[in-house]
Design a protein around this nucleic acid. Structure first.
Length: 354
DNA sequence: AATCCGTGGCC
DNA sequence: TGGCCAAGGAT
């Protein structure tokens, strides 16, 4: 067997998958076709997100919204709330928009070809191919980070990402068989997730160990090569923990676009580079007029492209204040779509302000 | 094309 | 501890 025999490689991979494939909540056993709704939902959740993180969210979603029609009629904020903590919140907005389109214009049936799927919000090249192969059993070239890594190693592609993407996709297309499209796609991704892992790949038990050129050359651990990432700056902000006489605190909704778009937050100054805020600057950004007292410590959080250091101040709002936001009782905070960084802020405030 | 967009686990 | 990484998409 050689790398010039793609069908033999596909067969050996599928044999491995039949023997070692993982049981996942969105996967059906044997030849049973999975629900396209489940495939789509899981694939969107799995974008840049681990199986371990996705699993409880997936189970909650399909329990609460058993069909895409039910998801489509849910209030957007319910979807955002259910998504809170999973990250990349534009996915949740696109997910809901997509559900509405499929439910209203297509009778709840997903299109079964890549081109049409690709037009749905939140569905890109990868997700369209994955749904086509997994949900509809049609051949599609499914390329995610796992596939790129596996191809780079199998064919010893040393060109760094992202420049190598086109070459890696062509290699993936060369290997993709006509048989069992869904199983094959999931098998390559499973291989990348469990054996051909980013660190310490388990080459000794890999079904492709004898064909892998990266391993033959002893460079598999260095692949895929990647361009160095730019340094992450640190941004600074001050969050206003605003309490009313009855104990309720002030939260507000972030703008629909951009970072944490549409999610709820503890009001804060802008998050700016380099320079921490001075107490004298608080009045210019406060959500309501108050005397602010600094709380000890700070909340650190790392986003994709910057670190955040958030200090907290606490203040009492006057009885007739009319802030831009929403008063929420402390024990009702979890009813709202608070992203993880804001959960950290709330915990810090509860520990330091009382 | 390059940037922006979350989070938690891992070593 | 901090950087790296994950079943990417939108602009």
């Amino acid at each position: 067997m050689s790398v010039c025999d793609p069908s033999a490689l596909a067969r050996s991979l599928l044999a491995w998958y039949d023997r070692a494939g993982r049981a996942l909540p969105w996967r059906k056993k044997g030849n049973e076709r999975p629900d396209p709704y489940h495939v789509w939902l899981s694939e969107v959740m799995l974008q840049q997100t681990t199986v371990a993180a996705v699993t409880p969210y997936f189970l909650r979603f399909i329990e609460r919204w058993p069909t895409i029609a039910q998801l489509a009629t849910a209030p957007t904020d319910d979807v955002m709330h259910a998504w809170a903590g999973l990250g990349y919140y534009a996915r949740a907005r696109n997910l809901h928009a997509c559900a509405k389109m499929v439910a209203q214009w297509r009778g709840g049936q997903f299109p079964d070809d890549e081109e049409a799927l690709r037009k749905l919000p939140g569905v890109g090249d990868y997700t369209a191919a994955a749904i086509t192969a997994i949900a509809f059993g049609k051949r599609a070239v499914v390329v995610d980070g796992n596939v790129e890594r596996v191809m780079a190693r199998l064919f010893a592609v040393t060109e760094p990402l992202p420049a190598a993407k086109g070459r890696l996709k062509a290699l993936a297309a060369h290997l993709t068989p006509d048989m069992r499209p869904g199983d094959y796609a999931q098998a390559v991704m499973d291989l990348g997730a469990t054996i051909c892992s980013p660190r310490n790949p388990a080459c000794g038990i890999c079904p492709w160990m004898n064909e892998c050129q990266g391993r033959r050359q002893g460079i598999e651990a260095q692949l895929p090569a990647k361009l160095a990432k730019p340094e992450r700056p640190t941004r600074h902000g001050i969050a206003y923990w605003t309490a009313r006489k009855d104990g309720a605190v002030l939260i507000r909704r972030r703008p629909p676009q951009g970072l944490l778009g549409g999610m709820m937050e503890i009001p804060s100054t802008p998050w700016r580079d380099d320079t921490p805020w001075d107490m004298a600057e608080l009045a210019a950004h406060q959500p309501v007029a108050a005397q602010w007292r600094p709380l000890p410590g700070l909340v650190r959080h790392t986003f994709t492209h910057f670190h955040l250091e958030l200090r907290l101040v606490a203040g009492k709002a006057s009885a007739n204040a009319t802030p831009l936001g929403l008063w929420v009782a402390l024990d009702k905070l979890s009813d709202h779509a608070l992203p993880s960084v804001m959960v950290k802020v709330v915990k810090h405030a509860l520990a330091k302000a009382y």
